[in-house]
Amino acid sequence: MFNMILRVTENPVRRTTARDIAIIAVFAAITAALGLLPAIYLPVSPVPITAQTFGVILAGAVVGGRRAGASQLLFLALVALGLPLLAGGRGGIGVFVSPTVGFLIAFPTVAGLIGWATERVGAPYRLLPGLVVNTAFGIGVMYLFGWVGMMATTHLAPWAAIVALAPFLIGDALKVVIATLTAKGVHASYPGLLRSRTARAVAGAA
Protein backbone atom coordinates (compact mmCIF):
# COMPACT_ATOMS: atom_id res chain seq x y z
CA MET A 1 0.00 0.00 0.00
CA PHE A 2 2.71 2.48 0.96
CA ASN A 3 4.91 1.54 -1.95
CA MET A 4 2.17 2.68 -4.32
CA ILE A 5 2.15 6.11 -2.78
CA LEU A 6 5.90 6.22 -3.03
CA ARG A 7 5.93 5.14 -6.61
CA VAL A 8 3.77 8.10 -7.53
CA THR A 9 5.81 10.68 -5.66
CA GLU A 10 9.17 9.24 -6.69
CA ASN A 11 8.27 8.77 -10.30
CA PRO A 12 6.44 11.77 -11.74
CA VAL A 13 6.27 10.18 -15.20
CA ARG A 14 2.76 10.78 -16.46
CA ARG A 15 1.19 7.44 -17.11
CA THR A 16 -1.83 5.76 -15.70
CA THR A 17 -0.86 3.26 -13.04
CA ALA A 18 -3.17 0.66 -11.53
CA ARG A 19 -3.51 2.95 -8.52
CA ASP A 20 -4.60 5.78 -10.82
CA ILE A 21 -7.28 3.53 -12.31
CA ALA A 22 -8.52 2.73 -8.82
CA ILE A 23 -8.54 6.38 -7.73
CA ILE A 24 -10.32 7.46 -10.91
CA ALA A 25 -12.97 4.77 -10.49
CA VAL A 26 -13.44 5.52 -6.80
CA PHE A 27 -13.90 9.24 -7.43
CA ALA A 28 -16.43 8.57 -10.16
CA ALA A 29 -18.28 6.54 -7.52
CA ILE A 30 -17.94 9.33 -4.93
CA THR A 31 -19.64 11.79 -7.29
CA ALA A 32 -22.36 9.17 -7.71
CA ALA A 33 -22.68 8.59 -3.95
CA LEU A 34 -23.04 12.32 -3.33
CA GLY A 35 -25.95 12.39 -5.77
CA LEU A 36 -27.71 9.95 -3.45
CA LEU A 37 -27.73 12.40 -0.55
CA PRO A 38 -31.20 13.84 -0.14
CA ALA A 39 -31.69 17.14 -1.95
CA ILE A 40 -32.11 20.26 0.16
CA TYR A 41 -34.80 22.80 -0.71
CA LEU A 42 -34.20 26.42 0.27
CA PRO A 43 -37.32 28.57 0.65
CA VAL A 44 -35.97 31.17 -1.78
CA SER A 45 -35.60 28.89 -4.80
CA PRO A 46 -37.66 26.15 -6.43
CA VAL A 47 -34.46 24.36 -7.48
CA PRO A 48 -33.20 21.70 -5.06
CA ILE A 49 -29.57 21.70 -3.96
CA THR A 50 -27.99 18.35 -4.69
CA ALA A 51 -24.50 17.37 -3.67
CA GLN A 52 -23.50 16.16 -7.13
CA THR A 53 -21.42 19.11 -8.38
CA PHE A 54 -19.83 18.98 -4.95
CA GLY A 55 -18.14 15.75 -6.10
CA VAL A 56 -16.83 17.45 -9.22
CA ILE A 57 -15.11 20.24 -7.25
CA LEU A 58 -13.87 17.80 -4.62
CA ALA A 59 -12.28 15.48 -7.19
CA GLY A 60 -10.33 18.38 -8.64
CA ALA A 61 -9.30 19.70 -5.26
CA VAL A 62 -8.16 16.28 -4.00
CA VAL A 63 -6.60 14.06 -6.69
CA GLY A 64 -5.17 16.46 -9.29
CA GLY A 65 -6.19 17.47 -12.79
CA ARG A 66 -5.62 14.36 -14.85
CA ARG A 67 -7.19 11.90 -12.47
CA ALA A 68 -10.02 14.26 -11.53
CA GLY A 69 -10.91 14.94 -15.16
CA ALA A 70 -10.79 11.22 -15.96
CA SER A 71 -12.93 10.38 -12.92
CA GLN A 72 -15.72 12.72 -14.00
CA LEU A 73 -15.51 11.49 -17.58
CA LEU A 74 -15.92 7.97 -16.22
CA PHE A 75 -18.83 9.16 -14.09
CA LEU A 76 -20.58 10.51 -17.20
CA ALA A 77 -19.85 7.28 -19.06
CA LEU A 78 -21.46 5.28 -16.25
CA VAL A 79 -24.48 7.59 -16.33
CA ALA A 80 -24.70 7.15 -20.10
CA LEU A 81 -24.57 3.37 -19.64
CA GLY A 82 -27.77 3.60 -17.66
CA LEU A 83 -26.70 3.57 -14.03
CA PRO A 84 -29.08 5.80 -12.05
CA LEU A 85 -26.29 7.91 -10.60
CA LEU A 86 -27.49 11.46 -11.16
CA ALA A 87 -29.29 13.19 -8.31
CA GLY A 88 -32.83 11.87 -8.06
CA GLY A 89 -31.81 8.48 -9.48
CA ARG A 90 -31.62 9.65 -13.08
CA GLY A 91 -29.31 8.20 -15.68
CA GLY A 92 -29.10 6.87 -19.22
CA ILE A 93 -28.25 8.70 -22.40
CA GLY A 94 -31.45 10.76 -22.11
CA VAL A 95 -29.75 13.21 -19.76
CA PHE A 96 -27.31 14.10 -22.54
CA VAL A 97 -30.05 15.58 -24.68
CA SER A 98 -31.83 17.31 -21.81
CA PRO A 99 -31.48 21.05 -21.10
CA THR A 100 -28.95 20.55 -18.30
CA VAL A 101 -26.51 18.77 -20.63
CA GLY A 102 -24.09 21.74 -20.51
CA PHE A 103 -23.48 21.17 -16.81
CA LEU A 104 -22.77 17.49 -17.36
CA ILE A 105 -20.28 18.19 -20.13
CA ALA A 106 -18.66 20.70 -17.79
CA PHE A 107 -18.01 18.02 -15.10
CA PRO A 108 -14.73 16.62 -16.52
CA THR A 109 -13.56 20.03 -17.72
CA VAL A 110 -14.19 21.73 -14.40
CA ALA A 111 -12.67 18.87 -12.36
CA GLY A 112 -9.63 18.86 -14.65
CA LEU A 113 -9.16 22.63 -14.41
CA ILE A 114 -9.60 22.73 -10.64
CA GLY A 115 -7.15 19.85 -10.30
CA TRP A 116 -4.62 21.53 -12.57
CA ALA A 117 -4.85 24.82 -10.67
CA THR A 118 -4.74 23.07 -7.27
CA GLU A 119 -1.57 21.24 -8.32
CA ARG A 120 -0.03 24.54 -9.42
CA VAL A 121 -0.72 26.04 -6.00
CA GLY A 122 0.70 22.88 -4.38
CA ALA A 123 0.78 21.50 -0.83
CA PRO A 124 -0.24 22.33 1.80
CA TYR A 125 -3.81 22.91 0.67
CA ARG A 126 -4.90 26.38 1.77
CA LEU A 127 -8.43 27.70 2.04
CA LEU A 128 -8.17 31.05 0.30
CA PRO A 129 -6.47 29.95 -2.94
CA GLY A 130 -8.71 26.89 -2.87
CA LEU A 131 -11.81 29.02 -2.62
CA VAL A 132 -10.68 31.25 -5.49
CA VAL A 133 -9.88 28.27 -7.75
CA ASN A 134 -13.07 26.41 -6.87
CA THR A 135 -15.27 29.44 -7.42
CA ALA A 136 -13.64 30.47 -10.69
CA PHE A 137 -13.97 27.03 -12.27
CA GLY A 138 -16.66 25.38 -10.15
CA ILE A 139 -19.09 28.23 -10.74
CA GLY A 140 -17.63 30.36 -13.56
CA VAL A 141 -16.78 27.63 -16.06
CA MET A 142 -19.59 25.35 -14.89
CA TYR A 143 -22.24 27.99 -15.56
CA LEU A 144 -20.70 29.05 -18.86
CA PHE A 145 -21.13 25.47 -20.09
CA GLY A 146 -24.54 25.15 -18.48
CA TRP A 147 -25.75 28.38 -20.05
CA VAL A 148 -24.59 27.45 -23.57
CA GLY A 149 -26.07 23.96 -23.19
CA MET A 150 -29.39 25.41 -22.06
CA MET A 151 -29.60 27.72 -25.07
CA ALA A 152 -28.57 24.97 -27.48
CA THR A 153 -31.24 22.52 -26.29
CA THR A 154 -34.15 24.85 -25.56
CA HIS A 155 -33.39 27.63 -28.08
CA LEU A 156 -34.14 30.11 -25.34
CA ALA A 157 -32.80 33.63 -25.66
CA PRO A 158 -29.61 34.28 -23.62
CA TRP A 159 -31.50 36.32 -21.00
CA ALA A 160 -34.17 33.65 -20.60
CA ALA A 161 -31.51 30.96 -20.12
CA ILE A 162 -29.93 33.10 -17.40
CA VAL A 163 -33.30 33.42 -15.67
CA ALA A 164 -33.71 29.65 -15.83
CA LEU A 165 -30.28 29.02 -14.33
CA ALA A 166 -30.16 31.73 -11.69
CA PRO A 167 -31.95 29.71 -8.96
CA PHE A 168 -29.19 27.07 -9.07
CA LEU A 169 -26.56 29.66 -8.15
CA ILE A 170 -27.51 29.92 -4.47
CA GLY A 171 -26.89 26.26 -3.83
CA ASP A 172 -23.73 26.17 -5.88
CA ALA A 173 -22.14 29.06 -3.99
CA LEU A 174 -22.81 27.15 -0.78
CA LYS A 175 -21.37 23.97 -2.26
CA VAL A 176 -18.12 25.64 -3.29
CA VAL A 177 -17.51 26.78 0.27
CA ILE A 178 -18.25 23.37 1.79
CA ALA A 179 -16.22 21.58 -0.89
CA THR A 180 -13.19 23.76 -0.16
CA LEU A 181 -13.43 23.07 3.58
CA THR A 182 -13.86 19.37 2.84
CA ALA A 183 -10.81 19.30 0.56
CA LYS A 184 -8.76 20.89 3.32
CA GLY A 185 -9.95 18.19 5.72
CA VAL A 186 -9.10 15.40 3.29
CA HIS A 187 -5.59 16.71 2.63
CA ALA A 188 -5.03 16.97 6.39
CA SER A 189 -6.05 13.33 7.02
CA TYR A 190 -4.48 11.87 3.86
CA PRO A 191 -1.26 13.74 3.10
CA GLY A 192 0.85 13.06 0.03
CA LEU A 193 -1.77 13.72 -2.64
CA LEU A 194 -0.34 17.12 -3.50
CA ARG A 195 3.34 17.77 -4.07
CA SER A 196 4.64 20.52 -1.84
CA ARG A 197 5.86 23.76 -3.36
CA THR A 198 9.40 23.23 -2.05
CA ALA A 199 9.61 19.64 -3.34
CA ARG A 200 8.43 20.83 -6.71
CA ALA A 201 11.06 23.56 -6.85
CA VAL A 202 13.76 20.99 -6.06
CA ALA A 203 12.45 18.59 -8.71
CA GLY A 204 12.32 21.43 -11.21
CA ALA A 205 15.91 22.42 -10.51
CA ALA A 206 17.22 18.85 -10.79
Binding site: M4, T17, R19, D20, A22, I23, A25, V26, V186
Partner: peptide, 8 residues
Protein backbone atom coordinates in the same frame (compact mmCIF):
# COMPACT_ATOMS: atom_id res chain seq x y z
CA UNK B 1 -8.80 6.73 -1.02
CA UNK B 2 -7.61 3.91 1.27
CA UNK B 3 -9.92 1.53 -0.57
CA UNK B 4 -8.46 2.79 -3.86
CA UNK B 5 -4.97 1.91 -2.59
CA UNK B 6 -6.09 -1.65 -1.86
CA UNK B 7 -7.93 -1.90 -5.17
CA UNK B 8 -4.86 -0.61 -7.03
Amino acid sequence: LREADALG
